[in-house]
Design a protein around this nucleic acid. Structure first.
Lengths: 339, 339
DNA sequence: AACGTCACCGCAAACGATTGCAGTAAATGA
DNA sequence: TCATTTACTGCAATCGTTTGCGGTGACGTT
């Protein structure tokens, strides 16, 4: 296959004029005769001329393209963030290149190289669970590409961030469980090398401490997927550790726990209350419906994109990183209703 | 912000040699002295040189980029297809530009223009619900860009397609309802301007006809979203139309129906059986679990990408469109269990 | 001494679009 | 009649990379 797209040169050749004139005619330059302009524009329309963005990128040293690196697109939260970014970008005339790290550090680094090669004008990123070293992102930033983190941030990198108030949200979720009479509240935590993992754990602990409930390490387990939650519930129950409330680091974990708990004959919320951390619309389709923190993925996407374009479109040389904290609502549903 | 990325010229200037030599040194050309090669490669490594993909695209008239146009990324099915495409593409050294049409014809056309401008080497597309005119895709194809449709295809366009056997899958789903003793089976259908909408309806009708069950038009309604399904169930029940089985065009529709049915006091599957058409993992988290046709989104993505690369990487001028039909499994779960 | 043979490297053009500057013809003014 | 302005249009360089071809100097050979 060989593409045969119309260029300015083709138009110039057909009309026996120079490419410069065609270029100027197309952008309505005052130097050009109206008849010439008309001829050029008519032909361009007939031939369905589309300017070659690649050539423009090279000329302007701007690709009018931004990159996104996310762990996995197949999550409501991430795809809704992308949706938000995409909407803002396309409205500004930018296109979006999306890369998945698949939670792998190596792929994240490879993604960065590819995006660097494509001379993206900016990058929105949420780091993989594996990532501990951030040199690849620092390099990118040092070569002049603005960076915005969302959700999974890297505090080691001086860049803009948009996050939700995980500490506060986790605190509220846990406090809600306490207020509905729960005493043995478990936390299904995320990886502790991620800020969100640490913050959500900390919020949980703050709520307990404030309420004078001692922290029981047997109730704090690392489980952040549907499968891990199912296994963990089995392990806990078999070991005789029976919580009366669970705060899970995300909804799939909460749902995994919920299913296994129900299979073992416990009632939700009567025996065990559950609160998740939202991946989106999932909470509305469980039985009972899942109480959850709403992360507002789409807004996070639009916010991140706007922060990025602020950097891209400004001439500021000094770089004072900005952190935007989005408010997260706790939505109380059937899985943690007051008795 | 101005990017300051290293180019071959920078390396050439520093080493006081010509760009040509640097270029050849970097690709280990035999004409170049080993010492020169070493010097170039060392410096390139130190400076973290990344070849400018934009310049290469211009030179080679190949962008090593493919486009995807999908209605909405925020659906498990679509995002898993993307995931499949992305994996194949990145393995072949291609990057992926993703555009959302948001089910709007106008945006779909705009997406095409943007992708054309970026000189993508190929396009994978699933058309919007609104799209009735396919000139934008035909234009794209005529300018030499290979095209592969998935799921929502445009039969008017002579291009590769990858679909699941909707007719067969719908037939199986409906037949399953019949075999479990259902007599008044409703179909919540998709838009009839889409092939998948028509095929799924046809499969449903085929199964009924084969079983000698007359087709009742009051049981065939257009409802293809969570919300529409909820409203439609209310409308039907209020009108005294009580099906004993429902085959829905997708899972969210099935789940919407399920919820409302349960709220109205009917038991699932005892009073009303439900079978959906899969958007993915949703089926596992309803109560009861939802019987559903598994569409294998990821495989559809990898298949579409491979078909596309066959076109991109071949020199064939003759274009014989190929249609790949993926097998879809009916997964029977609690929502339609035999009594 | 003159020529041929290497090994190695640079020139220049090309991809498509833009743009400062120069050039040309016609029209106007003196 | 000649100079100057006006109204256009084209040349050439640029962005970064590749690549055919030509060039240069150091050898060896006769």
């Amino acid at each position: 296959m060989r593409s045969n797209q119309i260029t300015i040169k083709d138009i110039a050749r057909i009309l026996s004029i120079s490419p410069s004139t065609v270029s100027r005619a197309l952008k309505d330059h005052p130097d050009i005769n109206v008849d010439t302009k008309k001829a050029v524009n008519d032909l361009a329309g007939k031939l369905k001329y589309q300017p070659n963005a690649v050539a423009l990128s090279l000329k302007n040293s701007r690709s009018y393209t931004i990159g996104i690196i996310i762990p996995e697109i197949v999550h409501y939260f991430f795809s809704s963030v992308i949706s938000g970014i995409e909407d803002v970008a396309s409205q500004k005339g930018y296109t979006v290149i999306i890369c998945q790290s698949n939670e792998s550090y190596i792929r994240e680094v490879a993604n960065c190289k590819a995006l660097l090669s494509h001379r993206i004008d900016g990058l929105v990123v949420s780091v993989s669970k594996e990532t501990q070293n951030f040199d690849h992102l620092i390099d990118l930033q040092e070569s002049g590409i603005p960076l915005v983190f969302f959700d999974r941030v890297a505090p080691e990198v001086d860049a803009d961030q948009v996050v939700i108030d995980d500490l506060e949200a986790s605190y509220k979720a846990t406090r809600h469980l306490i207020e509905t009479g729960r005493k043995r509240i478990a936390h299904f935590a995320g990886p502790q090398n991620l800020v969100i993992g640490r913050d959500r754990l900390q919020g949980y602990m703050n709520a307990l401490t404030e309420a004078g409930i001692p922290i029981d390490n047997r109730l704090i387990v690392e489980a952040d997927t549907f499968e891990k939650a199912r296994n963990m519930v089995v392990t806990m129950l078999d070991a005789g550790i029976i919580p009366d409330g669970i705060f899970a680091v995300n909804d799939m974990t909460a749902i995994g726990a919920m299913q296994t708990i129900q299979k073992r004959g416990y009632k939700i919320p009567d025996d065990i209350s559950i609160v998740g951390f939202s991946d989106g619309y999932l909470s509305g389709i469980t039985d009972p419906h899942l109480s959850s923190v709403d992360q507002h993925g789409y807004e996070m996407g639009t916010t991140a994109a706007e922060m990025l374009f602020n950097r891209i479109l400004s001439d500021e040389t000094e770089y004072i990183p900005e952190v935007k904290v989005l408010y997260a609502d706790l939505i109380i549903r059937g899985s943690s209703l007051k008795e």
